[in-house]
Amino acid sequence: MIPYVIKADKLTKQFGDFVATNQISFEVSKGEIFGFLGANGAGKTTAMRMLCGLLTPTSGAATVAGFDVYKQTEQIKRNIGYMSQKFSLYEDLTVLENIRFYGGIYGLPARELKAESESLLEKLGLQEQSKKLVGSLPLGWKQKLSFSVAILHRPQVVFLDEPTGGVDPVVRRQFWDLIYDAAENGITIFVTTHYMDEAEYCNRVSIMVDGCIEALDTPGGLKTQFKAATMDEVFYQLARGAKRQAD
């Protein structure tokens, strides 16, 4: 039994003189929706890359899904899902081809993949569009589809990097319904966003400023702590003090 799905202990990454993330420590438990906020250039992307096994930390320790970020990056990659606003599916493949491709990458057996893709299409209401090119779908559908593909192999953790940027308000909420569904099925959600109302949807939220985690609590706890009415105010109070100007 692993107590925490993600555990970071004084995780640090330095590029030359520049400390991108400075001794960040936190734990995320199974099925938790963890909001990872911070201004542009605060070090969110660097932290996320280290946890995904794409960057080797300079110092500190971290485990993701029970695997070490220094030595077991291959195992980590097999047990996580990743989705970003920029990462899209292949626009020139059909919906079904995309699902099969990503399922194939994670080595899902053919029969299981077939059943999975059918239930996925049904859940998203995309049966009619399954033979359409992904490029012809509206952005909201694409984002919902790529999230579903990212959790197709039932990862323990899924990392979402600004998944809802630019999508319409209704689809944005439908997207969060998907996130809640996944969390209830025991998938841990690690999400960044610029929408402060979405910070409220998270179980716990951390706010990074200049490479350090300056606050970490439930949205309610943070609002009490900073005597603020909304998460927007909490964020503003913290991030306003940021010194760092370069990415």
Partner: peptide, 10 residues
Amino acid sequence: TTGVDAVSRK
């Protein structure tokens, strides 16, 4: 302001 954090947007 797309992709810019809340403080910079303000």
